[in-house]
Write a protein that binds this DNA or RNA. Structure first.
Lengths: 348, 348
DNA sequence: AGCGACATTTGAATCGTTTCAACACGCCGA
DNA sequence: TCGGCGTGTTGAAACGATTCAAATGTCGCT
């Protein structure tokens, strides 16, 4: 790998001059510039970002930690962040925490050693000791939490309007005509899940429906576990709800698996809608009604904020908290069941 | 951010000593080690990888370029690579080329400037001038092509057994009882697509079926375009095939969209199987029969090879070419159509 | 006591950039 | 003719680590 010195020698100029033509920060006369450019091409010279970063103490790199980028939601977030970073000539390093707190800590340490200028964090579902984060902030590394946001820690955050978005889903089910609506949540240790649950409950109350504890099914982020929980509760036709709303993607998948395992059809036997989109190509399904999150935008906005903070060098003032609206994609699964249709028919 | 010097001062030792306790490459006496470790904790010192990389000219970083990590196949590849890298304490930087050759060139340049020690490349679908790659190899940067592999350029490669995997899909359709089978490919400018097509044709010939040019539908990687192509050809019931086999994910999605647009059901009206898994939560579908690629393993093996090459410092000898087997996931979409079932019934 | 062998510890050079102070060189106005 | 100015150009210091040769102890042995 040629160095700037070799370029300088070949072009017959000082290293400083080569640096000036590369960065463009200092004017260089035409003839010298041409000689330098020729030398660069000839040697196939690529400036060493490592050395540059050391000298300038700017890496022009952001880190982004997600739980698992094989979950379709996260790549969209990452690409959004990447796009925003690119507008400022930054790169992003994306890594997976697998929802493990110790792994997340390792990654934070790694990114810090790599001297990323800021970190976008989707916190692990496993409870994160806030000491992991306070160290960063103290060290002057930018931090923006997105999607999942911490409970009481002061940082910039970007996420979806959890409460109203969840409410929107449940309101839709109610509007269609469902009355006995079960809510399936992920771990309520996550603030997002609590807020979504709140939204669901509000929607029920606003419609004058009871908030029945028997219909609040709390699970986790493992579809298999959620499947088991739902199967148990769906087995008895008498106690079965009209509809189910699931507050996130992995639990939604669990619900669908439970339907399949129990031989239930949606919306024929139980209507269904879920927060977040799913990857369900192995299921026999009607199209699923979903509350769609603006994943790309969440990543984009979060990176934008981070970059602005980096540029301004300021993290002292009031944290920014952005909430982006979700949208409801009404498809087939939230329709009326056969039984309900029959009832509607006869009353008409 | 504290530096090694500050740690040394606080601990009352020389910087060299601190370095020795960090790297562990030179023994340090117990009392000094303890003092250094205490200083590190107290200052919350994180070694500067940038400076380390500059000195050692080792970044312990690999780059991986994929067309688009929102396509579900690629995150699995990336995670496989990440896992392999982690066993050697390497990190990976994943970036998206959007199937654009100029963008790919930019990314190659960027990764090179970041001094990654090797690059895993899934080539852009847009034809890549081999000069992009030869420069890398000349510069001594490791390169392994995966998934999509170049036509005549000598590099290590890891991909799926395209020919036999595609054949497996078509053989399955034939075994079920389909006879008029259409093949939908992506761009035949990609070597993979040509090989898969070859596999399909072989399967047809082996079964004594004609290879009918009218049933070879060549598309690209944009589902919308493929949808249009298929709609045109599916419109006339008389010329409609019994079954369709699609040679990759995006084209498969296009086929399914065409089914929906034409009001066709699978397998009721036309049976279907595809190479690669799909994300199709917005479609009303039976479960799709797919040829599943070992995405994670492809990434893992590719990174393994790259790391071995880096470690050995040797790229001179014969390139390694690994082909991993795919597996067939038989689901509902490849079954017999209503018409075929009736025929089978009456003949029984 | 003196000496060599061994085990630590030290300090300086180095990696490839950027950047800043200093320098060179025309050219203009006095 | 000369001082001063502006435009280009240069060379060396610095960034924060690693590493190697040299220095410093320690100890056993004669």
């Amino acid at each position: 790998m040629p160095t700037i010195k070799e370029v300088a020698d070949l072009a017959g100029v000082a290293v400083g001059t080569v640096s000036h033509v590369i960065t463009g920060s200092v004017p260089v006369s035409q003839p010298l510039r041409l000689k330098v450019e020729a030398a660069i091409r000839k040697l196939d010279y690529h400036p060493n970002h490592v050395a540059r970063s050391l000298k300038t103490s700017k890496t022009r790199t952001l880190g982004i930690i997600v739980p698992d980028m094989t979950i379709p939601y996260f790549p969209k977030v990452i690409r959004g962040a990447e796009a925003a970073a690119r507008t400022c000539n930054y790169s992003v390093i994306a890594v997976n925490s697998d929802d493990s707190a110790p792994r997340q800590k390792e990654l934070l340490t790694l990114l810090r050693s790599q001297r990323v200028e800021g970190i976008l964090l989707v916190m692990a579902a496993a409870p994160t000791p806030m000491t992991q984060l306070s160290g960063l902030v103290a060290a002057g590394i930018g931090l923006v939490c997105l999607d999942r946001i911490p409970d009481r820690f002061r940082v910039d955050t970007v996420t979806v309007e959890d409460t109203s978005a969840a409410a929107m889903g449940v309101e839709h089910l109610i509007a269609v005509g469902h009355r006995r609506i079960a809510i399936v949540t992920g771990p309520v240790s996550l603030k997002n899940e609590r807020e979504r649950l709140l939204g669901c409950e509000e929607a029920l109350r606003t419609a004058g429906l009871p908030v029945d504890e028997d219909l609040m099914w709390h699970g986790n982020l493992r579809p298999e576990d959620v499947e088991a929980i739902c199967r148990e509760r769906l087995a008895d036709p008498a106690r079965r709800p009209d509809a189910i709303f699931s507050t996130n993607g992995p639990t939604g998948l669990g619900v669908l698996r439970a339907f399949r395992a129990e031989g239930l059809r949606t919306p024929g036997d139980v209507a269904f809608a879920t927060f977040d989109e799913l990857t369900v190509d192995d299921l026999f399904l009607p199209a699923i009604t979903t509350v769609v999150q603006p994943a790309y935008d969440i990543g984009f906005r979060a990176a934008e904020i981070l970059l602005k903070r980096i540029e301004e060098g300021g993290f002292g003032d009031e944290p920014i908290a952005i909430r982006l609206p979700a949208s409801l994609k009404v498809r087939d699964s939230s329709g009326l069941s056969a039984r309900q249709q029959a009832a509607a028919q006869s009353s008409a």
